[in-house]
Amino acid sequence: MKGTVLKVENLAVRYVTEDGIVQAVNGIDISVEKGSTLGLVGETGAGKTTTALSVLRLIPDPPGEVVSGKIELDGKALMELPESKMEKIRGGLVSMIFQDPMTALNPVLKVGDQIAEAIKIHQQLSQDKALQKAREMLEMVGIPGARMNEYPHQFSGGMKQRVVIAIALSCSPKLLIADEPTTALDVTIQAQVLELMKELKEKMDMAMIMITHDLGVVAEVCDNVAIMYAGRIVEQGTLEEIFNNTKHPYTEGLFLSIPNIDDRKAELKPIRGLMSDPFNLPPGCSFCDRCDYAMDKCATEKPEKVHFSPDHFVECHLYPDNKEFQLKGGKG
């Protein structure tokens, strides 16, 4: 049985700072189906983390400001809930894992107590029961239960990230938001953690948003992919559509920037220039001045969504008139 766990409509977030206004997220729609994983892909400053924090209503205000948007999680309209109800939802219905496992744990508390604390906030359990559950959670993420009386500094980076995952999953959330969960880890440890996350997601039948800049990670864990650039989702579709039928020049640029491990002679074709200044986004397409396909129109008009399938859309001026247009980069 499937259903929508998360529905975000027309979300826009900005940060008002002394230097001006940063338009971090500019009207995006996301929906995540039960049991599926959405990959949110983009570079530094694309607005990925801001999007995730909005779902948890954790945007620091000030300077952050949610300009517009409807967020519906498991049938509840989050934007209208009072803060006290929100606290129940965070860690209960939806949890988040952050990039840096080193700072996510309290160094002076035993890991078992930290997991138990999360459990007690959301479930009426006695200390003994909560600790018992904490032990089970630790074992579920592959750490011997006996280690629950140890302190975070006694764990390695990969182990800490497992503890963080145990805390996040302790109340069986419907949705897990993982913000670059493996970026700080070594390759072999990353493989372990990704494997674990995939396994647990199946087991607990939850939906997941995987925020990452690594298309390799996306290929491994995601069902759907949204590519973000300068606060917009420029292309979204199923994993297969994005990888094998790439439509947006930026998506293509990302693929061509990654060294291909199976073909060492392949030349890297980086995207030129830098991401546009978030204080001062261009009136037209934000990607315009880095795009090899840019036309006059791109500088002045915002592109509209063009659908290729119910799931797959792209925001680009190349397509409304000519849906057959093919990117030339040898990808897709």
């Binding site: 700072t17 940063v22 971090a24 530094t44 400053g45 990925k48 983390t49 200044d277 978030p278």
Partner: peptide, 12 residues
């Protein structure tokens, strides 16, 4: 994350 650290300083 770095969404917030980006600032006008990017303009040289």
């Amino acid at each position: 994350m770095s969404d917030r650290t980006l600032s006008r300083k990017m303009i040289p």
